[in-house]
Protein backbone atom coordinates (compact mmCIF):
# COMPACT_ATOMS: atom_id res chain seq x y z
CA UNK A 1 0.00 0.00 0.00
CA UNK A 2 2.79 2.39 0.82
CA UNK A 3 4.41 1.59 -2.53
CA UNK A 4 1.31 2.64 -4.34
CA UNK A 5 1.13 5.90 -2.50
CA UNK A 6 4.68 6.86 -3.31
CA UNK A 7 4.05 6.18 -6.99
CA UNK A 8 0.97 8.39 -6.92
CA UNK A 9 2.87 11.27 -5.42
CA UNK A 10 5.73 10.47 -7.74
CA UNK A 11 3.51 10.57 -10.85
CA UNK A 12 2.67 14.23 -10.56
CA UNK A 13 6.24 15.16 -9.82
CA UNK A 14 7.48 13.00 -12.67
CA UNK A 15 5.14 14.65 -15.09
CA UNK A 16 6.19 18.09 -13.97
CA UNK A 17 9.72 16.95 -14.65
CA UNK A 18 8.73 15.77 -18.14
CA UNK A 19 7.13 19.13 -18.82
CA UNK A 20 10.45 20.72 -17.90
CA UNK A 21 12.04 18.46 -20.56
CA UNK A 22 13.71 16.34 -17.87
CA UNK A 23 14.77 13.20 -19.67
CA UNK A 24 15.32 11.34 -16.42
CA UNK A 25 11.77 11.97 -15.25
CA UNK A 26 10.54 10.81 -18.63
CA UNK A 27 12.57 7.63 -18.33
CA UNK A 28 11.17 6.92 -14.85
CA UNK A 29 7.63 7.49 -16.08
CA UNK A 30 8.26 5.14 -18.99
CA UNK A 31 9.65 2.37 -16.84
CA UNK A 32 6.85 2.71 -14.36
CA UNK A 33 4.07 2.38 -16.91
CA UNK A 34 5.65 0.20 -19.53
CA UNK A 35 4.26 -3.06 -18.28
CA UNK A 36 0.60 -2.17 -17.63
CA UNK A 37 0.34 -0.24 -20.88
CA UNK A 38 2.11 -2.85 -22.98
CA UNK A 39 0.05 -5.60 -21.43
CA UNK A 40 -3.17 -3.65 -21.97
CA UNK A 41 -2.41 -3.02 -25.65
CA UNK A 42 -1.39 -6.64 -26.09
CA UNK A 43 -4.66 -7.91 -24.59
CA UNK A 44 -6.56 -5.56 -26.87
CA UNK A 45 -4.86 -6.44 -30.14
CA UNK A 46 -3.38 -9.83 -29.27
CA UNK A 47 -0.03 -8.92 -30.77
CA UNK A 48 3.21 -8.11 -28.98
CA UNK A 49 4.51 -6.16 -31.95
CA UNK A 50 1.45 -3.97 -32.24
CA UNK A 51 1.45 -3.41 -28.49
CA UNK A 52 5.07 -2.37 -28.68
CA UNK A 53 4.28 0.13 -31.46
CA UNK A 54 1.40 1.55 -29.50
CA UNK A 55 3.38 2.12 -26.32
CA UNK A 56 6.12 3.75 -28.37
CA UNK A 57 3.63 6.07 -30.09
CA UNK A 58 1.99 7.00 -26.80
CA UNK A 59 5.23 7.89 -25.03
CA UNK A 60 6.61 9.75 -28.02
CA UNK A 61 3.48 11.84 -28.31
CA UNK A 62 3.63 12.62 -24.60
CA UNK A 63 7.14 13.92 -25.00
CA UNK A 64 6.35 15.89 -28.14
CA UNK A 65 3.22 17.46 -26.68
CA UNK A 66 4.47 17.80 -23.09
CA UNK A 67 3.83 21.54 -23.04
CA UNK A 68 0.25 21.23 -24.22
CA UNK A 69 -0.89 18.28 -22.11
CA UNK A 70 -3.19 19.03 -19.21
CA UNK A 71 -3.71 16.05 -16.92
CA UNK A 72 -7.21 16.13 -15.49
CA UNK A 73 -7.49 12.88 -13.56
CA UNK A 74 -4.26 10.98 -13.20
CA UNK A 75 -1.34 10.19 -15.45
CA UNK A 76 -2.30 6.57 -15.23
CA UNK A 77 -5.76 7.14 -16.68
CA UNK A 78 -4.36 9.59 -19.21
CA UNK A 79 -1.90 6.95 -20.41
CA UNK A 80 -4.56 4.26 -20.56
CA UNK A 81 -6.82 6.57 -22.49
CA UNK A 82 -4.00 7.17 -24.95
CA UNK A 83 -3.41 3.44 -25.37
CA UNK A 84 -7.13 2.91 -25.91
CA UNK A 85 -7.22 5.51 -28.66
CA UNK A 86 -4.06 4.27 -30.38
CA UNK A 87 -5.25 0.66 -30.17
CA UNK A 88 -8.55 1.55 -31.71
CA UNK A 89 -6.81 3.37 -34.53
CA UNK A 90 -4.53 0.38 -35.01
CA UNK A 91 -7.52 -1.95 -35.04
CA UNK A 92 -9.12 0.18 -37.71
CA UNK A 93 -6.04 -0.09 -39.90
CA UNK A 94 -5.72 -3.84 -39.27
CA UNK A 95 -9.34 -4.37 -40.30
CA UNK A 96 -8.62 -2.60 -43.58
CA UNK A 97 -5.52 -4.60 -44.47
CA UNK A 98 -6.18 -7.77 -46.44
CA UNK A 99 -2.87 -9.32 -45.39
CA UNK A 100 -4.12 -9.41 -41.78
CA UNK A 101 -7.21 -11.42 -42.67
CA UNK A 102 -6.06 -14.56 -40.86
CA UNK A 103 -5.54 -12.69 -37.66
CA UNK A 104 -8.86 -10.92 -38.03
CA UNK A 105 -10.74 -14.16 -38.62
CA UNK A 106 -8.98 -16.20 -35.98
CA UNK A 107 -8.50 -13.74 -33.15
CA UNK A 108 -10.12 -10.36 -33.46
CA UNK A 109 -13.56 -11.26 -34.81
CA UNK A 110 -14.04 -14.12 -32.31
CA UNK A 111 -13.10 -11.76 -29.48
CA UNK A 112 -15.72 -9.24 -30.55
CA UNK A 113 -18.28 -11.95 -31.17
CA UNK A 114 -17.69 -13.18 -27.68
CA UNK A 115 -18.26 -9.69 -26.33
CA UNK A 116 -21.42 -9.27 -28.35
CA UNK A 117 -22.69 -12.63 -27.22
CA UNK A 118 -22.06 -11.88 -23.60
CA UNK A 119 -23.72 -8.50 -23.84
CA UNK A 120 -26.79 -9.97 -25.43
CA UNK A 121 -26.89 -12.68 -22.82
CA UNK A 122 -26.63 -10.09 -20.07
CA UNK A 123 -29.46 -8.14 -21.61
CA UNK A 124 -31.61 -11.23 -21.69
CA UNK A 125 -30.81 -12.25 -18.17
CA UNK A 126 -31.85 -8.77 -17.09
CA UNK A 127 -34.98 -9.03 -19.17
CA UNK A 128 -35.74 -12.44 -17.72
CA UNK A 129 -35.22 -11.22 -14.17
CA UNK A 130 -37.55 -8.36 -14.85
CA UNK A 131 -40.21 -10.66 -16.17
CA UNK A 132 -39.79 -13.10 -13.30
CA UNK A 133 -40.23 -10.27 -10.82
CA UNK A 134 -43.44 -9.37 -12.65
CA UNK A 135 -44.93 -12.83 -12.04
CA UNK A 136 -47.56 -13.31 -9.31
CA UNK A 137 -45.72 -13.95 -5.98
CA UNK A 138 -46.82 -17.58 -5.64
CA UNK A 139 -45.95 -18.43 -9.24
CA UNK A 140 -42.58 -16.67 -8.90
CA UNK A 141 -41.75 -18.58 -5.74
CA UNK A 142 -42.52 -21.93 -7.35
CA UNK A 143 -40.62 -21.03 -10.48
CA UNK A 144 -37.50 -19.95 -8.55
CA UNK A 145 -37.61 -23.05 -6.37
CA UNK A 146 -37.74 -25.14 -9.53
CA UNK A 147 -35.14 -23.37 -11.65
CA UNK A 148 -32.83 -21.66 -9.17
CA UNK A 149 -32.78 -24.18 -6.38
CA UNK A 150 -33.34 -27.13 -8.72
CA UNK A 151 -36.05 -28.66 -6.52
CA UNK A 152 -38.23 -31.36 -8.07
CA UNK A 153 -41.99 -30.94 -8.37
CA UNK A 154 -42.57 -33.38 -5.48
CA UNK A 155 -40.08 -31.49 -3.27
CA UNK A 156 -41.76 -28.17 -4.02
CA UNK A 157 -45.20 -29.65 -3.30
CA UNK A 158 -43.94 -31.03 -0.01
CA UNK A 159 -42.14 -27.79 0.95
CA UNK A 160 -45.12 -25.55 0.20
CA UNK A 161 -47.78 -28.02 1.34
CA UNK A 162 -49.64 -27.98 -1.98
CA UNK A 163 -50.49 -30.68 -4.49
CA UNK A 164 -48.07 -31.67 -7.22
CA UNK A 165 -50.67 -30.76 -9.79
CA UNK A 166 -50.79 -27.20 -8.44
CA UNK A 167 -46.99 -26.96 -8.74
CA UNK A 168 -47.20 -28.21 -12.31
CA UNK A 169 -49.94 -25.71 -13.13
CA UNK A 170 -47.99 -22.82 -11.61
CA UNK A 171 -44.81 -23.76 -13.47
CA UNK A 172 -46.79 -23.95 -16.67
CA UNK A 173 -48.13 -20.42 -16.08
CA UNK A 174 -44.61 -19.13 -15.34
CA UNK A 175 -43.06 -20.71 -18.47
CA UNK A 176 -45.89 -19.45 -20.62
CA UNK A 177 -45.30 -15.89 -19.38
CA UNK A 178 -41.54 -16.15 -19.85
CA UNK A 179 -41.48 -18.14 -23.06
CA UNK A 180 -40.92 -15.06 -25.19
CA UNK A 181 -37.67 -14.13 -23.45
CA UNK A 182 -36.51 -17.72 -23.32
CA UNK A 183 -37.22 -18.24 -27.01
CA UNK A 184 -35.25 -15.13 -27.93
CA UNK A 185 -32.37 -16.36 -25.82
CA UNK A 186 -32.36 -19.68 -27.63
CA UNK A 187 -32.49 -17.97 -31.02
CA UNK A 188 -29.53 -15.75 -30.16
CA UNK A 189 -27.60 -18.79 -29.05
CA UNK A 190 -28.20 -20.36 -32.43
CA UNK A 191 -27.36 -17.22 -34.39
CA UNK A 192 -24.23 -16.14 -32.61
CA UNK A 193 -22.57 -19.51 -32.40
CA UNK A 194 -20.37 -19.46 -35.48
Amino acid sequence: MSVRRTTEIGDTELFIGVQRSDMEAFSLLYHQYWHPLFSFANKLLRSYDDAQDIVQTVFLSIWERRDAIVIQQSIESYLHQAVRFQSLKKLESILSSPEQIDRIQEELLPAFNDILHRLQEQDLVKQLEKEISGLPPRTREIFLLSRQYKLSIAEIALKLGISEQTVKNQLHIALKALRHSIAVMLIIDLVTIP
Binding site: S39, K43, L44, A111
Partner: peptide, 13 residues
Protein backbone atom coordinates in the same frame (compact mmCIF):
# COMPACT_ATOMS: atom_id res chain seq x y z
CA UNK B 1 -19.16 -3.26 -27.37
CA UNK B 2 -15.99 -1.17 -27.68
CA UNK B 3 -16.00 -0.30 -24.01
CA UNK B 4 -16.45 -3.94 -23.11
CA UNK B 5 -13.43 -4.67 -25.30
CA UNK B 6 -11.40 -2.14 -23.28
CA UNK B 7 -12.76 -3.48 -20.02
CA UNK B 8 -11.91 -7.10 -20.80
CA UNK B 9 -8.38 -6.22 -21.89
CA UNK B 10 -7.80 -4.01 -18.91
CA UNK B 11 -8.95 -6.73 -16.54
CA UNK B 12 -6.71 -9.30 -18.22
CA UNK B 13 -3.78 -6.88 -18.18
Amino acid sequence: IIEQWFKDARAAA
